[in-house]
């Protein structure tokens, strides 16, 4: 095949993206596209795995067997999501080990929301409703992202994510109809998880220099502010069914805009948490590193066993011959 200048490859690539044709692992893609996706998909994967920790905290103390089984299933799903995403990232030319090293060394980030502690059972409800809710808002459009393996992973994730959100809301609903102490616990969890969830959508559009390129490449389908506004609009209605409030005195329906106005976000806090100064950053990372190091013997044993079986199989077939 005759050599084509890179600009022609880029044209063919952008053409595919514009026509909603998926880019697959063996297709030509700009280096920047590949790097952006590796960063985004691997950090998404890290978020799922680290995200197992705040909820894992309550598995041993769930109020009933039913709640415990459900929470285990949810956390198990998050592990699966991490796996789909690591696999998708690997198709871009990075190894699992390298991604894990990046997480453990602090080089790679994960969603800031998981650096907050889960201090009551109601936190399980708030996380399911708000955190998974925000994740769904972000992930549904990603089902149509330009990179094939990432889009397909998102389709799978979205199917599983909806029970997560319903499970969370149900927890809060039950608490909201309970004793005074339970109602207070419910409102308190909402008060602590609301703003961090709003921050999950990332910096404001004007402070997000990569957004324009990501939109052109259809890595991103909606801007941060667009998704954030949608999230606020939906939660502002849903919270009414709980008989609770969102901790924002500026939250108000604006008929002219046809959206809810909401208060200012504390970007300093987001920056701090992202940079490692959140309440649980060190704890989360330490837990991951420990799990990896203490699990090394399992990985080694698996290989040793596989080799032993193979050798035994070879020996038997040699003897049979």
């Amino acid at each position: 095949m005759p050599a084509m200048p890179v600009t022609d490859f880029e044209k063919v690539f952008q053409d595919k993206v514009d026509k909603e044709i998926k880019i697959e692992p063996r297709d030509w893609m700009p280096d920047k596209y590949r790097q952006t996706l590796i960063r985004q998909v691997s950090q998404h994967a890290h978020s799922e795995i680290v995200g197992m920790l705040p909820e894992g905290n309550w598995i041993s103390r769930a109020p009933s067997l039913r709640r415990k089984a459900i929470l285990i299933a949810k956390v198990q799903d998050e592990a699966g999501h991490g796996l789909y995403l690591y696999s998708a990232a690997e198709t871009l030319g990075i190894s699992r080990e390298e991604m894990i090293d990046q997480l453990h060394s602090g080089k790679a980030k994960y969603s800031s929301i998981f650096n907050y502690p889960t201090i009551t059972w109601a936190d399980m409800g708030a996380i399911g409703w708000l955190v998974d809710g925000a994740a769904i808002m972000n992930q549904v459009p990603l089902c149509r992202t330009s990179y094939g393996p990432y889009a397909r992973a998102m389709v799978r994730v979205c199917k599983e994510e909806s029970f997560h959100q319903r499970q969370g809301f149900e927890i809060l609903l039950v608490l909201s109809k309970g004793s005074e102490a339970q109602k207070r616990m419910c409102q308190d969890a909402i008060n602590r998880w609301w703003w961090p969830s709003v921050m999950m959508f990332g910096p404001a559009d004007e402070a997000s220099p990569h957004t324009a390129q990501s939109m052109k490449w259809k890595v991103k389908r909606f801007t941060n502010d667009e998704l954030r506004q949608r999230f606020v609009d939906i939660c502002a209605e849903q919270v009414k069914l709980l008989g609770m409030t969102l901790p924002d005195k500026d939250l108000k329906w604006n008929a002219a805009r046809n959206h809810y106005d909401f208060g200012p976000i504390d970007w300093e806090e987001l920056k701090n948490v992202i940079n490692g100064n959140g309440p649980c950053n060190k704890e989360r990372l330490a837990a991951r590193v420990k799990a990896h190091e203490e699990g090394a013997w399992v990985r080694e044993a698996a290989i040793a066993y596989a080799e032993k079986k193979k050798a035994r199989g070879n020996k038997e077939s040699l003897e049979a011959a």
Partner: peptide
């Protein structure tokens, strides 16, 4: 040049899954 995914050590060498 990239390191193998999920590896263990056995006799000092890295073996990948």
């Amino acid at each position: 040049g990239s390191s193998p995914a999920v590896s263990g050590t056995r006799g000092g060498t890295d073996v990948a899954w």
